[in-house]
Design a protein around this nucleic acid. Structure first.
Length: 139
DNA sequence: GCCAACGTTGGC
DNA sequence: GCCAACGTTGGC
């Protein structure tokens, strides 16, 4: 069981859109970066991830679950790209802002801080617990 | 809206 | 296989 972080611009695909998809979930498509793709290929059913709003918002707003293993990305014919499906699990009771994350010493090594451009990132168990604590939600 | 950082592309 | 040029991302 591993933890991840998914980034999206809320204007394009935000938490509300994800919630609207319900338990069926939705393809996390459109990723055209090898590192991000490889992270998705490593995911297992039931893995959890944070849902982060980039550009506008700059905060972790909810928790999602991987509900389909990596498969071809339906938005392209290019066989290089595939993606998992994710579904919304629950919102953060209190969204966790990038500012908070940067100010929390225990989160200093988060990929979000170190390599903010990677759109699908791994999160360690320890980081997961700290962010859940800040977000006042169950780990 | 700007621009630094990063990833990808393509000519050599 | 190198690296300059280019495109994209995302915090500010």
């Amino acid at each position: 069981m591993a933890y991840w972080l998914f980034k999206s611009e809320p204007d394009v695909w935000g938490w509300d859109a994800q919630v609207a998809k319900g338990d069926a979930g939705e393809e996390w498509n459109g990723v055209r970066n090898y590192q991000a793709r490889n992270n998705m290929r490593a995911m297992e059913l039931g893995d959890l991830g944070f849902f982060y709003h980039s550009r506008t918002g700059l905060e972790i707003v909810g928790i999602v679950e991987v509900c389909a293993l990596s498969h071809p990305d339906s938005t392209t014919d290019d066989p290089r790209w595939d993606c998992v499906d994710i579904k919304a699990v629950r919102p953060m009771v209190k969204p966790v802002s990038l500012d908070q994350i940067k100010q929390e010493p225990r989160l200093a090594d988060m990929v979000l801080v170190k390599n903010s451009r990677l759109s699908v990132q791994p999160v360690t168990d320890a980081e997961w617990r700290v962010v859940c604590e800040l977000g006042m939600t169950e780990p």
